[in-house]
């Protein structure tokens, strides 16, 4: 039993990170119908910028804040320089653009920073806390709390604020939103900033546990996408539930089946979900307009 508990705890930690990445996907997808394959790079940037700002002498909280702000700015730049000029392009082109952007960001990170693994100290020390015969790192609690806080913040933002409602209106019908006076291009800027900032926050929270390197983004983007799809593309609570479920599934696969094939779990989930229920757990059913 303690063994199972241990797998569940580590799964929930990893799952919270996937949930944050999936939330980032969801925001951009909702605002623009674009799946941003560079989402994982935001997580990498969050971790790497914090590492290097901290090494340069900035206190950790300031370094983390700087990382989130800079990454959000990079997200906005991505939208302005690569996504906006390609508005109306076929999906295949947009896929290649965001993958190209992710490779570009990775290449730049490798030049600006380095190719080493990095970490910075955990926020509340490294002494494990005992829970029902298993242990959990204090940092894991930070990660899980962070994911929950972001989720609640987004929920409030999208349901209670005018700006949040404007984003939802844009996602429902871009033209109609423009006609009622919503500045849709500003909504896109905001969505990219928010999404990149959340990605960076995930990177800041998880780096003390998993370490970071210039190339950690790809795997996270794929897992985050799997989580978003499992929960239902475009649904914030779907992203949260999908992320946690995927994390648990991976931890259980690694624990009981084979640690070599733990990454396969995500892809088998993707394939199974796509075939069995393409709209995911919480996703709205979409019909294609002709």
């Amino acid at each position: 039993m303690p063994e199972l508990m241990q797998f569940l705890l580590s799964g929930a930690t990893v799952g919270a990170v996937y949930a944050l990445v999936a939330l980032g996907f969801t925001i951009i997808y909702n605002a623009s119908d674009i799946v941003n394959f560079a989402q994982g790079e935001f997580v990498m940037l969050g971790g790497m910028i914090t590492v290097f700002a901290h090494m340069a002498g900035l206190p950790l909280p300031l370094a983390a804040l700087l990382a989130i702000v800079v990454t959000a700015a990079i997200g906005v730049a991505l939208n302005k320089l690569a996504i906006e000029p390609a508005r109306g392009a076929p999906v295949v082109s947009l896929i290649i653009i965001t993958i190209g952007a992710s490779i570009f960001i990775r290449g730049a990170a490798q030049l600006v920073f380095d190719k080493q693994l990095h970490r910075f100290p955990a926020f509340s020390g490294d002494d494990p806390i005992a829970v029902l015969g298993a242990t959990i790192l204090p940092q894991s609690l930070w990660v899980i709390a962070g994911a929950l806080a972001v989720f609640i913040g987004l929920w409030l933002f999208f349901t209670k604020t005018l700006t949040g409602l404007a984003v939802l209106a844009t996602s429902n019908n871009r033209l109609a939103a423009q006609l009622v006076g919503i500045n849709t291009s500003w909504v896109m800027t905001l969505s990219f900033a928010l999404s990149a900032g959340i990605g960076a926050l995930a990177g800041v929270l998880v780096t003390p546990i998993t370490l970071t390197r210039y190339d950690v983004g790809i795997a996270l983007a794929l897992k985050g996408f799997a989580a978003a799809m499992l929960g239902g593309m475009g649904s914030p609570h779907g992203a949260l539930v999908g992320g946690i479920l995927l994390g648990l599934l991976e931890a259980l696969t690694a624990g009981y089946i084979s640690s070599q094939y733990k990454d396969a779990a995500a892809f088998i989930v993707i394939l199974a979900v796509l075939f069995a229920m393409p709209q995911g757990i919480f996703g709205a059913k979409r019909t294609e307009r002709v």
Partner: peptide, 20 residues
Amino acid sequence: AEYEQLMLGLIMVLVMIFMR
């Protein structure tokens, strides 16, 4: 060689924007 990824990514984005 260090710039290979940077260039590959840049080419992908630019070609898709300007020469679809």
